Simulated assay, not measured.
Amino acid sequence: MAKSPEKFQIIYRGEALAYYKPGEWVFFQRPKGYGGGYWLGKTYDFVFMLEIPYPISLRQGMEFMDEAEGFGAHKPAFVDDFKLE
């Protein structure tokens, strides 16, 4: 579940997104008065797309990113001597 800081940004309450890379993940922290947590989405030119339609924790977001990028997917073992008959 380790993500490199180049793959996502965390924007805390009261801050603004100063820069972005198209396709980069961004967490926006919600005000505590509204329940806290984070909105998670991806930045693209001219648009920010929410990936999850409800607030989440950082841990949930990192797990979601891992699954979305295929890090948590199970890959079947290959059989070297497989033959079709």
Rank of each mutant, 00 (worst) to 15 (best):
V47D: 12
K21A: 06
M1I: 09
G37E: 00
P55T: 06
G37Y: 02
R30K: 15
L17H: 08
G70Q: 03
L17E: 08
L84H: 10
G35H: 07
A77W: 05
E63N: 15
G61K: 08
F82R: 09
S57F: 05
K32S: 14
R13W: 03
G72N: 14
G33I: 01
Y44A: 05
K3P: 00
A73D: 13
G61A: 10
R13N: 12
F82A: 12
G33Q: 08
L58C: 05
M65I: 15
A77P: 00
Q9Y: 08
S57K: 07
D81C: 14
D66H: 07
G35V: 01
L84W: 11
G36W: 03
G14F: 04
E24D: 10
A2V: 09
K75Y: 06
W25K: 03
I52G: 02
A2E: 13
L84R: 12
E15K: 11
T43E: 12
A77N: 10
H74G: 00
G41T: 06
P55W: 02
M62Y: 09
G72H: 09
L58F: 09
G23P: 00
K32C: 06
W25P: 04
I11V: 15
Y38L: 06
F8R: 06
L40I: 14
G72S: 15
G23H: 00
A68W: 11
Y34N: 11
W39E: 01
W39T: 03
F46R: 09
T43L: 13
P22A: 07
Y44W: 09
G61D: 09
W25G: 03
E24P: 02
A77E: 13
I56T: 04
Y54P: 01
M1C: 08
K75M: 12
A77H: 07
Y54D: 01
R30I: 11
F78W: 14
D80G: 10
F82V: 12
P53Q: 12
G41D: 01
W39N: 03
Y54A: 11
K75L: 13
D66C: 10
F8I: 08
L40Y: 00
F71D: 14
K42S: 11
F8T: 06
K75W: 04
G14I: 02
E51F: 00
P53G: 08
G41H: 05
Q9R: 11
I11C: 10
F71W: 13
Y19Q: 11
T43Y: 10
R59F: 11
M62L: 13
P55A: 07
E63Y: 10
E63S: 14
P31Q: 06
G70L: 03
E6K: 14
F64N: 08
W25A: 13
A68G: 00
G41E: 03
L50V: 05
K21G: 02
L50D: 10
K21M: 06
F71L: 15
F71A: 15
M1Q: 12
L17M: 11
R30M: 11
G70M: 01
F78Y: 14
Y34I: 09
S57I: 10
F46H: 11
